[in-house]
């Protein structure tokens, strides 16, 4: 029985999934990992695409949002005894070839959470990127830079990619993110601050991320500006919240 679960949150990614899934299946087989897609009430043919590629899928009956969707995956992993979880986006932005690097780091047992950073140099990787790499729009990069400094002030940790959705967890971290402390509305830099505040060990590794054409509300118009404001509010709330006890019972 595999001890590694790969979580892929999916919401209306029918156009982009076919490019990701064959590669993901190949890489998952190399590390003996199961793949679980969580379909967040997609209204396009995402579910059909997942079924055609024979991906095990949980489906939400109503749209809950990104944070709740990945938390469903965490809860599944906890319930069915997985030791490690690696999450990556269903839009093909994250290179599945980096999955083994996550597992390697997690198995060292030096960290509870491994964050894939697009801003770290992947000199040690035996494979080159598949295409031009994505570092974010101008507004997003400014936002990320601000988040780095705020995180540094609040947690004394320099996190190069605080908005990365390419993350690996061990079971201790899983126990924590299944609880009420996980910011399920839209986990971002505030999630990292919450992890650090609650004593979880966080490490970054380099990963490849590619640009994808998506029509997301956060990527158009005033969306990026609102996103930055929202994350700052969330960071402040995460900073003043009490430390939780729900991850202290370690197996």
């Amino acid at each position: 029985m595999s001890t590694v679960l790969i979580i892929v949150p999916v919401h209306n990614e029918a156009r982009l999934l076919p490019g990701l899934l064959p590669r993901l299946k190949r890489e998952a087989k190399k590390i003996d990992a199961h793949i679980l897609a969580i379909n967040d009430a997609s209204t396009d043919s995402s579910l059909r695409v997942l079924n055609n590629h024979k991906i095990h899928t949980l489906s939400h009956s109503t749209q809950l949002g990104y944070g709740s969707t990945i938390q469903t995956g965490y809860k599944y992993a906890m319930r069915f005894g997985y030791d490690y979880v690696i999450q990556l986006d269903g839009d093909g932005q994250h290179d599945p070839r980096c999955l083994s690097a996550f597992l390697q780091e997690l198995k060292k047992k030096e960290s509870d959470i491994i964050i894939g950073s697009r801003y770290l140099s992947p000199n040690g990787y035996p494979f080159p990127p598949l295409g031009p790499l994505y570092y974010g729009t101008v507004v997003r990069r400014i936002g990320i830079h601000l988040f780095r400094w705020v995180l540094l002030v609040l947690s004394f940790r320099w996190i190069t990619d605080p908005t990365s959705g390419y993350i690996g967890f061990n079971r201790d971290a899983l126990r924590f993110v299944c609880g009420k402390s996980f910011p399920f509305d839209y986990p971002d830099a505030d999630a990292i601050l919450t992890f650090l505040k609650n004593g979880l060990r966080v490490k970054e590794i380099p990963v490849y991320m590619y640009p994808v054409q998506k029509d997301h509300a956060l990527h158009r118009g005033c969306g990026p500006i609102w996103y930055v404001i929202k994350v700052f509010i969330s960071l402040f709330i995460a900073f003043i919240r009490r430390r939780e006890n729900n991850h202290d019972e370690r197996s």
Binding site: L58, H60, Y76
Partner: peptide, 16 residues
């Protein structure tokens, strides 16, 4: 919102 989230997540796992 917390309760609805928990219910929908549980429902997805039960359906599976």
């Amino acid at each position: 919102q917390y309760n609805i989230k928990d219910i929908v997540q549980e429902l997805a796992m039960l359906a599976d």
